[in-house]
Design a protein around this nucleic acid. Structure first.
Ligand SMILES: [Mn+2]
Ligand SMILES: [Mn+2]
Ligand SMILES: [Zn+2]
Ligand SMILES: [Zn+2]
Lengths: 142, 142
DNA sequence: TCTTTAATGAGAATTATTCTCTTTTAAATA
DNA sequence: TATTTAAAAGAGAATAATTCTCATTAAAGA
């Protein structure tokens, strides 16, 4: 996802968040691990360079980053939360046989959906965001 | 959702599942509570007519029903699982300010999406199911 | 540099869910 | 219908992801 250290600091400052090593570490982890990681994976990654970070801090930082829309939570059918550092609009491909989740970017699709819903709307509902969850099988069973 | 007791028994038998009062009760709860209830809500509902059901049994029954595709899990960003008894193809409207989740059925949309993906496909991925997660605000703040 | 206030660390607490083991029961069979 | 048996349910303990509490630390502004 290649986001520089300076960009990370900028993003935190833009939201008027204190720039702490822990917050930087969590954002770096999310920008590096573009696999929609669980908290466990995030901690595992951070501990390589920052072995003493507290687990509770990682949870707290993730909450703050989500609240400030610097990251997103990824919806799943599981009891483990997953996180996404990618902010540009995109959809997700879910493997039906594993926990793999990949990004799916398609501007034509977005245009088609926007046009469809601008024309048609949804009675009694004000749309803020439309995401596709596409379930299936990856052909490279990576 | 109006599914009769006989239909419930039929559905269990079709899947070669033993027809137990607990399984019937869970299915009845899901057909009545069409609010994508949590396990807690399901238990609360069942206990009105079946006060001694064991919590562990409800969890087990839900797992079995999901495995047998008699119900679905609903993806959320929360640590509480939610369930859906509606089997016909549909999408979900998520309230951005509460936990409300409503069904959204739109055959034109499904046709448009099917046509789009049949034509375009997704490289390296075999699509099995496409669901929209539409986030926004319900105008009747029910 | 000093001060303030928010963030972190450590570990306990919570709680949704799972597990284990005994008892019960659905349903196939005699 | 009575018997058999494998599967399901019940009870409560265990697990584990997440949250909470509170003492300590540190970011950032004055
Ligand atoms: Mn859990
Ligand atoms: Mn949990
Ligand atoms: Zn993503
Ligand atoms: Zn639904």
């Amino acid at each position: 996802m290649k986001v520089s250290g300076n960009q990370i600091i900028e993003r935190l400052k833009d939201k008027r968040l204190k720039v702490t090593p822990q917050r930087i570490a969590v954002l770096e982890a999310l920008y590096t691990l573009d696999s929609h990681p669980s908290v466990e994976k995030i901690i595992e990654y951070i501990k390589k360079t920052y072995p003493n970070i507290a687990i509770g801090t990682v949870y707290k930082v993730l909450d703050v980053l989500v609240e400030n829309q610097l990251i997103h939570r990824v919806k799943t059918e599981k009891d483990i939360m997953r996180y996404d550092g990618k902010l540009e609009n995109h959809h997700h491909l879910y493997c039906s046989e594993s926990d793999r989740i990949e990004d799916f970017i398609d501007e034509d699709l977005d245009d088609m959906l926007n046009e469809y819903f601008i024309k048609k709307g949804i009675a009694g509902f004000e749309i803020e965001e439309i995401k596709l969850h596409i379930k299936g099988k990856f052909k490279d069973m990576q």
